[in-house]
Design a protein around this nucleic acid. Structure first.
Length: 309
DNA sequence: AAACTGACCTGCAAGC
DNA sequence: TGCTTGCAGGTCAGTT
């Protein structure tokens, strides 16, 4: 569920509370939320208790907290994950899977509650490895002043591409990959090894803004169109972030449980049956990759379509 | 090698 | 009211 803007809202909310905090307790209520944790690393709780979190870092939809032990706590929200900051003793959150008790040097004690309805998300303690380009591995907000962990990335996140808001995102490599690939543009936007952070909502929104059909072959995009699309991706992610992300229900909330407002700004996603804000034709929903694509059939036509036997 | 399909899960709304 | 069905913001292993 949460895409880059939603995950960034969570990261930014956690940053002040977790940076410098000592982990004093770990409670696991559902081991399925540890599916990304390798038992070879050791018991999850033992690898956390007694160590400090040094920062809150994000690349795409992955979030991690470098630890004083030299490892990192990795968090992915999956489709329905939330990380909630609570005062110790607060009323129980439903669907609570993991809880960390932490102690901040000046702000005091918190509960970090990992809540996840569908359990597609997870937490794990992972090794940190150097980034190939020696650039900062992800976005760390105000904490990143060339610290030791900046150019280190959790091993399980290393295969994920940089996101389009990352200053080290390599545009040329991305455009070259689009040229080389033999697939549709939406599939490519959702491929986190090409560009990270984009999910079903923002893929549909960016394609609507760029007037591209979701099955337009990537290899058919000229340099100008590809640039335009990337610009639209950045624009929609930035706008959504400014509005606190997209919330349809209580499933996506920030660390305090509050919703974002971007759902009011959607032009295509979930708008099937409503008029396209640009041309007035009705937005259509189509099956795509075991999910849905939403688009305007009038201003998002397939160009140079391949022969359809 | 690259492209694509299920599997993994729970809860909610809509339809009967 | 209670059942069934379809649907949901993602990733990964496995199969062609």
């Amino acid at each position: 569920m949460p895409e880059l803007p939603e995950v960034e809202v969570v990261r930014a909310g956690l940053e002040p509370a977790v940076t410098g905090s000592l982990i004093t307790g770990v409670e696991i209520f559902d081991v399925r939320s540890l599916k990304r944790h390798s038992v070879l690393a050791g018991p999850f709780a033992d690898l956390l208790a007694g160590h400090r979190m040094l920062a809150a870092v994000r690349r795409g939809k992955f979030l991690w907290f470098p630890l004083s032990s030299g490892r990192a706590l990795v968090t992915h929200l999956g489709m329905s994950g939330q990380v909630l900051l609570r005062a110790p003793g607060a009323v129980e959150d439903g669907l609570l899977r993991i809880r960390l008790s932490i102690e901040h040097p000046t702000l005091g004690e918190f509960w970090v509650n990992f809540v996840d309805q569908r359990i597609f998300g997870s937490m794990a303690v992972d090794e940190l490895v150097p980034t190939p380009d020696a650039r900062p591995a992800g976005f760390a907000g105000a904490t990143s002043l060339d610290p030791a962990w900046a150019a280190l990335i959790p091993s399980q996140v290393a295969h994920i591409a940089r996101d389009p808001l990352d200053p080290a995102f390599h545009e040329t490599t991305f455009f070259a990959a689009l040229n080389r690939k033999n697939t549709g543009i939406k599939r490519a936007l959702l491929d986190q090894t090409l560009v990270s952070g984009i999910g079903n909502i923002y893929a549909d929104e960016a394609l609507w803004a760029a007037k591209l059909h979701f099955e337009q072959p990537t290899s058919s995009l000229g340099p100008r169109v590809a640039r335009r699309l990337l610009a639209e991706v950045r624009l929609v992610l930035t706008k959504a972030l400014a509005e606190g992300g997209t919330s349809f229900d209580a499933q996506y909330v920030n660390v305090n449980g509050a919703s974002g407002y971007f759902s009011h700004s959607l032009n295509a996603y979930g708008q099937q049956g409503k008029p396209c804000p640009r041309c007035g034709h009705l937005i259509v929903r189509a099956a795509f990759m075991n999910r849905s694509s939403h688009f305007c059939p009038h201003c998002q036509k397939l160009r140079r379509p391949r022969a359809t036997q």
